[in-house]
Design a protein around this nucleic acid. Structure first.
Ligand SMILES: [Zn+2]
Length: 288
DNA sequence: CGTTTTTGACCCGCGC
DNA sequence: GCGCGGGTCAAAAACG
């Protein structure tokens, strides 16, 4: 796969099937027009025009890359879903025997996917517990890493993580061990007014305090489902308040970074591809 | 006094 | 094996 000169690459993808998180090119055009008429001296018009067109071209290129990546991610999840279904229908009991067989087949680097995946059947059951991420806009730099979601939580750990200066807090539902639900909460690096809560599992009881659910007025939250079945295609955007243009790019960055995390973590099986994707998208982020 | 938070120790999987 | 990063435990402290 080489799409180095990607502006020449026209994929057969349906480029209209995704919401566009990127700044539109017509915005650049209007920007340029207003500048041209007001600020830029006439002598520079041509130069600015060239730069603007170049910017538009690169913008389009990045846009297409982004779409390709999304398309890849979608396909990847579709495959994973099918594989997961297949594995649940055909419980792999030959795993032990298969081990010796795959040693023989080693140099055929078999992508026959059945043999490969039967070796760790447990993993596919472990990914079953439903994981969902929630982006919550919380009141200005409130240091308490608490998301008021109506449930009662017991904090059982806090760690500093590698690529985020803010610590990550670990919670269990207070009804444990009856209720197995856990959540992780960490403030986003890219928008310090957003905390990301990652829920794992489902509660087997009612809300402990139903009246306390003060879905604090100003939180627009983004809920995505991370289970293999409904991964990316069902990202739901629940923006209870329209985003102001000021925080818009910040939110975009948080969302894009989230997408980067999703995709890269999903594509770890191919390191070179992973690197390419990561650099491509971080370029995307740097631009906006 | 029961519950929750804090926080270092511990564990575990992974890459070298 | 070792170190690293992420996740968990549990004793002590803090809370109400
Ligand atoms: Zn619960």
């Amino acid at each position: 796969m080489e799409y180095r000169s990607s502006s020449l690459v026209h994929t057969s993808l349906d480029l209209n099937s995704f919401p566009n998180y990127l700044p539109a090119n017509h915005e650049l055009q209007t920007m340029f027009n207003s500048y041209e008429s007001n600020i830029i001296p006439p002598a520079k018009h041509e130069e600015v025009g060239d730069l603007t067109r170049e910017l538009q071209r690169v913008n389009l290129e990045n846009e297409n890359l982004m779409k390709m990546v999304k398309e890849m991610y979608k396909d990847y999840n579709l495959l994973q879903m099918r594989l997961s279904d297949y594995m649940t229908k055909n419980p792999p009991q030959l795993a032990d025997k298969q081990k010796s067989d795959t040693l023989i087949n080693e140099n055929s680097n078999s992508n026959s996917s059945y043999e490969n995946t039967c070796q760790n059947p447990i993993k596919y059951q472990q990914t079953r517990p439903k994981i969902s991420k929630v982006f919550v806009r919380v009141e200005a730099s409130d240091t308490s890493l608490v998301v008021n979601d109506g449930y009662k939580w017991r904090k059982y750990g806090q760690k500093v993580t590698r690529d985020n200066p803010y610590p990550r807090a670990y919670f269990k539902c207070s009804y444990a061990p009856t209720c197995p639900v856990k959540k992780k909460v960490q403030r986003s690096t890219y928008d310090k007014t957003i905390v990301v809560a990652t829920y794992e599992g489902e509660h087997n009881h009612q809300y402990p305090s139903r009246h306390e659910i003060v879905m604090s007025p100003c939180l627009n939250h983004i809920v995505t489902n991370d289970s293999p079945r409904l991964a990316i295609p069902t990202i739901t955007l629940d923006l209870t308040t329209p985003i102001k243009s000021g925080s818009h790019t910040e939110t975009q960055m948080a969302l894009q970074q989230f997408l980067v995390d999703q995709m890269t973590s999903s594509l770890t099986k191919d390191p070179s591809l992973k690197a390419a994707v990561a650099s491509a998208i971080s370029g995307q982020i740097a631009k906006s």
